[in-house]
């Protein structure tokens, strides 16, 4: 039986501006997460960029139950492209709408 997996959305801030609309940067982030998490955990979490809200703030979707793994994995990602970067998980929500509201509240 095929069933739909529920997602959780994580609001992530980067220490510098990142452009995840650029396919190369997004692919680089995914490959670094894959390297940190390992094949099985990455497949289980299935992280995807859901939306970019500003130069340094974006939303990543993961399968429900894996949001803490994503936070930990992001702690170890310190390079993107050729530049150094840090990622901070700010909030987690079940909807993109909820995170957008949080974004407005936190970043004004």
């Amino acid at each position: 039986m095929i069933f739909k997996r529920k997602l959780r959305y994580v609001l992530v801030e980067a220490s510098r501006s990142v452009n995840l609309g650029d396919e190369r940067e997004e692919r680089d982030l995914r490959s670094r997460l894959h390297g940190v998490m390992g094949e099985a955990a990455y497949f289980r979490a299935n992280p995807r960029t859901a939306a970019q809200l500003s130069e340094s703030v974006f939303i990543i979707s993961v399968n429900r139950g894996c949001e803490k793994d994503l936070g930990l994995a992001l702690s170890f990602v310190k390079t993107l492209g050729s530049e150094s970067v840090g990622f901070w998980t700010i909030k987690t929500s079940g909807t993109v709408k909820g995170l957008k509201a949080q974004f407005k509240k936190l970043y004004g």
């Binding site: 220490s15 510098r16 803490k68 936070g71 930990l72 702690s75 840090g86 901070w88 998980t89």
Partner: peptide, 17 residues
């Protein structure tokens, strides 16, 4: 540096690790 900062939830997970 700012790159080495972590959020509270990340630190909690780090402590558990």
């Amino acid at each position: 540096g700012r790159d080495c900062l972590l959020s509270r939830t990340q630190m909690q997970e780090m402590a558990k690790l």
